[in-house]
Amino acid sequence: MRFAILLKADKDTEAGKMPGEEMFAKMAQFNQELIDAGIMQAGEGLQPSSRGARVKFTKDGKVSVVDGPFAETKELIAGFWIWKCKSKEEAIEWVKRVPMPMESGEAEIEIRQVFEAEDFGEEFTPELRELEERQREQLARQS
């Protein structure tokens, strides 16, 4: 099972404030533990929403773009990991070990299971599964 581990933003991450050297070192050590355990597949920090945009699609086919920043920080993501775990419980146990990422001393991390091909049912035909596999292989080669 794969899980997206989503670190919620706060006022400091939205202000573009960088962690100190000690936090970078703790996160690097934690990431190495994840890699050594075969858990971590990807992970990145995200720029503040002031450097982002939202694209909205409406029922009538209109598309609009709103540039950041976005007001409600508790709904924003400051960074993410993709982990491969045996269960949600295993992912929870790893999240409990994350070094405190926020200077405020408070943080929220969301765990969301990633859909796998078998989760989609009959509508995800063998042809579509084959296409997705080719796309994944192409992405791996490009990395």
Rank of each mutant, 00 (worst) to 15 (best):
L46E: 06
A71F: 08
I35C: 05
K59S: 15
V55P: 02
P101G: 01
E132F: 15
Q29E: 15
A25L: 03
K26S: 12
G61I: 12
S87D: 07
E110H: 06
K26Y: 04
E123T: 14
M102Q: 12
E14L: 05
M100S: 11
P69W: 11
K62L: 09
T58C: 05
E89V: 04
F3A: 04
G68Y: 08
M100N: 13
R2L: 14
K88M: 15
W94P: 00
P48W: 11
F30E: 04
G68W: 01
F24R: 10
K8V: 08
G43V: 04
E90F: 00
G52W: 03
E116N: 08
A25V: 01
F24N: 11
E33M: 13
S49W: 04
N31D: 14
G105C: 08
I5K: 05
S104L: 12
A117T: 12
A15M: 05
M23C: 00
G61M: 09
L34F: 03
W83R: 02
E132T: 10
K8M: 09
A28V: 03
E44N: 13
E33G: 08
T13I: 06
K96T: 03
L46Y: 00
F124E: 01
I39K: 13
A28C: 05
R134D: 07
S87M: 07
S143H: 12
M102V: 04
P126G: 02
T125D: 03
M102G: 01
E122N: 07
R97S: 11
E33C: 07
